[in-house]
């Protein structure tokens, strides 16, 4: 990775959802979907966001691509703020930041042909001069994602789940973006198809040099394709590091628990699992102090009182824990 300014930077990003406003328009409850998220992503890099269901991963993805408006904080693309822009600026932003969704069945309009799905961004962003240029680009995109060229004239229902996800990826690639947000992009696919799509994403990144924000709960796949990992818990980032730092030397007790829960293919290689008990607390009323303190086996009074901030612990490794290595210290 180069040391120049990051492609994408999130500063203190916050997203709250306000529930059931009362008669005076004041919300009766607030969902803390994202709180104080600070992350950077360099050009050509893959950053994975991992965590349990409901930890705010998908909200993060949707906020980054400006499908949801952040409540507070900043989003910077190439050092320029993009969280408040609209109109022509927003359009230029959309051409650079694309998204692939989880469900390949509902993410494509069933009533329009693949050609029209793929050319829609070209028309909207004014990226094709004439019909011939559109056709050429559509064929190029189909080649890129490994679909036959005659797919252009067909409807989404004629394709399998994996093929549909290839179409969705082609749509995202269509305006030649710098960043693609993959929101659980392979989670709904069969294992064999999942591997194909993951490899396809890797190949495309090598060829085009685009950056990826890969949102997933599948640690095995994340380990296979990512450069860096950010672990989220209940709307906060608890640990960030490169692949080796996270998978080889996780320091946060939550990350440890997540990694130990990954199924091991070798039955002889029995690791001691540090399984978590209890459920994730409600994001409407997150616990005070460290949000993990209700499930952390090592929680102290400090954890229940003060919110730990994300701090560097050597290299690119950062954790949001009051202690340097709670798991080892307790063992």
């Amino acid at each position: 990775m180069t040391t120049c300014a990051p492609l994408l930077e999130l500063r203190n990003l916050q997203k709250h959802y306000f529930l059931r406003p009362n008669l005076l328009g004041k919300p009766t409850a607030t969902v803390h979907a994202l709180d104080d998220v600070n992350l950077t992503l360099s050009a050509g890099e893959t950053l994975s966001i991992v965590g349990e269901s409901g930890c705010g991963k998908s909200t993060l993805g949707k906020t980054v691509v400006r499908l949801h408006q952040p409540t507070d904080g900043q989003i910077l693309l190439d050092g320029r703020r993009v969280d408040q822009i609209g109109g022509a600026e927003l359009k230029a932003f959309r051409a650079r930041v694309q998204v692939v969704f989880q469900d390949p069945y509902s993410s494509l309009n069933p009533r329009i042909r693949v050609r029209d799905t793929l050319s829609e961004p070209l028309h909207n962003f004014g990226l094709a001069k004439d019909a011939a240029a559109v056709t050429q680009r559509v064929e190029e995109l189909l080649d890129m994602v490994g679909l036959p060229r005659d797919a252009a004239g067909r409807y989404p229902h004629e394709f399998s789940g994996g093929q549909r996800q290839r179409i969705a990826i082609a749509r995202a690639l269509s305006p030649r973006p710098d960043l693609i947000v993959c929101d659980e992009a392979v989670s709904a696919l069969d294992v064999s198809v999942k591997a194909q799509i993951v490899n396809l994403l890797g190949d495309i990144q090598k060829k085009t040099g685009l950056a990826m924000l890969f949102i997933s709960h599948d640690l095995a796949i994340v380990e296979h394709l990512t450069h860096r990992v950010a672990v989220m818990y209940l709307g906060r980032v608890v640990e960030v590091g490169n692949r080796r730092e996270i998978f080889g030397n996780a320091l946060h007790p939550y990350t440890r628990a997540l990694i130990s829960a990954v199924p091991q293919p070798d039955p002889m290689n029995k690791t001691r699992r540090k399984l978590l008990t209890g459920d994730v607390p409600s994001p409407i009323a997150p616990p005070p102090g460290c949000r993990f303190n209700t499930r952390c086996p090592f929680a102290t009074d400090l954890c229940r009182a003060e919110v730990p901030v994300l701090r560097a612990v050597g290299g690119t490794h950062q954790i949001a824990c009051h202690y340097d290595n709670l798991v080892e210290a307790a063992a």
């Binding site: 499908l67 959309r94 051409a95 993410s107 494509l108 309009n109 069933p110 961004p121 749509r171």
Partner: peptide
């Protein structure tokens, strides 16, 4: 609420176009 509407927004389509192209036929 379908993701393909979000996809169309991300693809730069404006509301009138989304209504005519993506909502109406469905």
């Amino acid at each position: 609420e379908q993701p393909f509407i979000d996809g169309a927004i991300a693809a730069g389509s404006t509301m009138p176009k989304i209504i005519i192209r993506h909502i109406l036929p469905n």
